[in-house]
Computed example of a mutant assay.
Amino acid sequence: MDLNKEIRSLFATTTNMSASLIKSLPDTHQAWVIRIGNDFGVGVAYKEDTSISERFTSARMWTAPITIHNENYNFLMLTCQDEYQRTEFSAICAQFVDPEERKNLLESPYTWWDRWRNLLGNSVKNKTPHGVLGELITMRKLWDLGEGPVWTGGEGGVNDIQCGSSEYEVKSTTIRYDSIVSITGQFQLDYHTSDSLYLIFCRFESSLSGESINDVVHSLVQRGMEEQKLEAALEKCGYEAGSSARTDRYKLLEMRKYKVDDSFPAITAKSFAGGQIPEAVVQFTYRLELAGLPYESWI
């Protein structure tokens, strides 16, 4: 049977929490169709003791221990949760388990992943690694100041961090000289549940001597933050444990703190007649030049 057709057929017949051997593959390159909860896809034995977890759109590449017929495996899997895309997804799965691709896949799974993600035109909607890093470093700074920060960016909050009576919006860039930030919506630079709002601007450069997301998470846990909550927030940002982007290192070149008050050039409801945004205005985004605005250096 054609490999793609067999995978499609096994998608329909494999039951939950089980694996079905793909018989059209040679014994030297075994692979299985698997179902684990809402995830379905394919898996191959992976000898490396490495945790991998990458996502794009509705697909995921990850590692997990699997037991088949009383034999334990460390599986490298490609799975999906969208049953309506089974036919399309089976073609990618066939490429994943193809014997001609197996050596390259097992030696460099991240390279395989990046190639297919780019081919499929995935638009990464998650925050950038340096964007998440800026928020985490701001969390660490506020923790060291005794402010008791709560990270709300991963929860889809309007602002990234809350500290009692203050809120913090964090913007990060890797552009060397620009100080332009994008503001999304009428609420991002407005007061909500606090008495004051601050904009933190971080400038990074890619550097082997810098810090990664994993580095800062480790430092936060050492300070007493709850690791489980941090990991849950990172997963919602698209950076769960095992994501390669969590090891990307950036050097913090500059960190500015701006107080967002009545003199700060923000567009909010107060900017409109009567202090209310017209009903016809549903959403707006604007770019803000920070050069020339007063700030406190935080580095």
Rank of each mutant, 00 (worst) to 15 (best):
E211C: 04
E211N: 06
E211P: 05
S212L: 03
S212P: 02
S212Q: 04
S212H: 01
S212K: 02
I213H: 05
I213K: 07
I213W: 04
I213T: 10
I213N: 06
I213M: 08
I213L: 10
N214Q: 08
N214I: 05
N214K: 06
N214P: 03
N214M: 05
D215S: 08
D215A: 04
D215Q: 06
D215P: 06
D215M: 04
D215F: 02
D215G: 06
D215E: 05
V216F: 02
V216E: 01
V216P: 02
V216R: 02
V216W: 00
V216A: 00
V216Q: 00
V217H: 00
V217Q: 00
V217K: 01
V217M: 01
V217F: 00
H218Y: 12
H218C: 13
H218E: 14
H218D: 13
S219I: 09
S219D: 09
S219P: 07
S219E: 08
L220F: 02
L220I: 06
L220E: 02
L220H: 03
L220V: 05
V221M: 03
V221L: 03
V221C: 03
V221K: 02
Q222T: 14
Q222M: 09
Q222W: 01
R223V: 00
R223Q: 00
R223I: 02
R223A: 01
G224D: 04
G224M: 07
G224V: 08
G224F: 01
G224W: 01
G224L: 06
M225Q: 11
M225C: 14
M225P: 10
M225E: 13
M225A: 14
E226Y: 14
E226H: 13
E226I: 15
E226Q: 12
E226W: 11
E227C: 02
E227M: 02
E227W: 00
E227F: 00
Q228F: 09
Q228R: 11
Q228S: 12
Q228D: 12
Q228V: 12
K229C: 08
K229W: 11
K229F: 09
K229Q: 13
L230H: 08
L230V: 14
L230W: 09
L230A: 10
L230I: 14
L230M: 12
L230N: 11
E231K: 07
E231A: 09
E231V: 11
E231G: 03
E231C: 08
A232L: 14
A232Q: 15
A232V: 14
A232G: 15
A232D: 15
A232H: 15
A232C: 15
A233D: 15
A233K: 15
A233H: 14
L234T: 08
L234H: 04
L234C: 07
L234Y: 03
E235G: 09
E235L: 11
E235W: 05
E235I: 10
E235T: 11
K236E: 15
K236G: 10
K236N: 13
K236R: 15
K236W: 07
K236V: 10
C237N: 12
C237P: 08
C237F: 10
C237Q: 12
C237T: 11
G238Q: 08
G238A: 10
G238R: 05
G238N: 06
G238L: 07
G238C: 09
G238F: 05
Y239N: 05
Y239S: 06
Y239H: 04
Y239E: 07
Y239I: 04
Y239T: 04
E240W: 11
E240T: 14
E240G: 15
E240R: 13
